[in-house]
Amino acid sequence: MTENVSNRTFGWFETADEIITTAEGHTFTCRHVPTNRTYLLRVSTGEVKDGWRTPHNSALELPTVHATVAATAKLYSSSPPDRDFVPEPGGLILPEYHGVLDARYLVPVSAVYRRRGAIPFENLLSIPSALVHIFPFWENLWLLLTSETSLLATSAIPFDVWEDRWQHLVRGSELGRQLFREMPAGLSGRVATRIASIVNSQELGVGPSLEESSIIRLMIATAGKQVTKKQVEASLACPFFRMNTTVHDLHYAVALAALLQPQEWLFQSPLEWLGPTALIIPTIIDGLLAQPSAFPDDSSAFERCPPPDEATLTRFSLFLREPELTVRPYLTLQET
């Protein structure tokens, strides 16, 4: 029966090979598609026989997660609060579990450490994507987009230049849908059709739209003084933050950074167009150029993480486990 659930997708995940079978459950490799990171998914025999669509394994995994969290809590409480957490050589190695949020994001639930100064990724998710549309930067971005799009009517900007600058920002986003609804006057039908094709493209596959992305959320949080520049730097150096950084986020960051470069057709500087919120973009780019800090190799960069409470654990219906204890690379930008 397991062939019915291998190679199945749910949310931003897809299952692959079954690697372990026991009387109580089946373990599959499970890939988080937009980050290309693989985890282990264990589901009950009954659920496999039912041919699940979206897996729920809390009943099966919670006892193991509880045991891991209890051991984590013991490690946490055994170290004086004023001392950095440094693992003892040859000490207990615990599996890392993550709760799955909305079938899209991963939230660590058994970590004994976190990057000092980093903000939890789920804190960013508390910023509603609807808030983006009343964010001043969004209006500035819209004005720049429509200004440059209108220049296509007179060929003041070649279409391939426009496409290179905007394709990742309009593809599948509210920005693109708004452009499609309010196309500037004077564009040829051919140009409008090409823009519509880009807006509706699914080239990158599943992942966050521009307004949902961690890049825009970091910009909003910084502009609203909810986080500082140092917290942005620390967050992008935190493995638990970066495990949710998608290929879409990388494209958004690069595209937004490119808009900061002066162009001959702009009468004002890019910063005058986009406003001071854009000043955090270079910091984001710098963070995404590097791998996050590695634990325990860079243990001085980390602090102890208090274990989650029961309410935090029980809000998840699905848990995934890290497949190995080696450090796996995260998606990063490449310098050119």
Rank of each mutant, 00 (worst) to 15 (best):
Y76G: 02
R321W: 09
V232M: 07
H66I: 14
W12F: 10
C305I: 04
P276E: 15
E324M: 15
Y105T: 13
K49R: 15
I216L: 12
W12G: 09
P136M: 05
R181E: 11
Q167F: 05
H32E: 05
M183D: 03
D160H: 15
I281R: 00
E96T: 07
E122F: 06
H56K: 15
N123K: 14
L325V: 07
V33S: 07
A71P: 08
I280A: 06
A67W: 08
Q291R: 05
P136H: 01
G207E: 08
L40M: 06
F295D: 00
M1I: 06
Q167N: 07
L151H: 04
R31C: 10
T149C: 09
H26R: 12
N244D: 07
W138M: 12
R194D: 15
V112H: 03
A73W: 02
P282W: 01
A67R: 14
V199W: 07
D286S: 09
T45N: 10
E3G: 09
I280K: 00
F135Q: 12
V86E: 12
P89N: 11
V227M: 13
L274N: 03
Q202F: 06
R104V: 06
P81Y: 04
E122I: 11
N36W: 15
V86R: 05
V33D: 03
W166N: 04
E303T: 07
T246H: 01
L145R: 11
V43Q: 01
S126V: 14
H32A: 01
K49M: 15
R190F: 13
R114M: 11
R165M: 10
Q261M: 12
L60H: 01
F135L: 13
T45H: 09
R8K: 14
D82C: 01
T54E: 07
E24R: 09
E61A: 12
L271N: 09
L152T: 05
D17F: 07
S293V: 05
N36A: 15
L62K: 00
I216P: 06
E233L: 12
L41A: 08
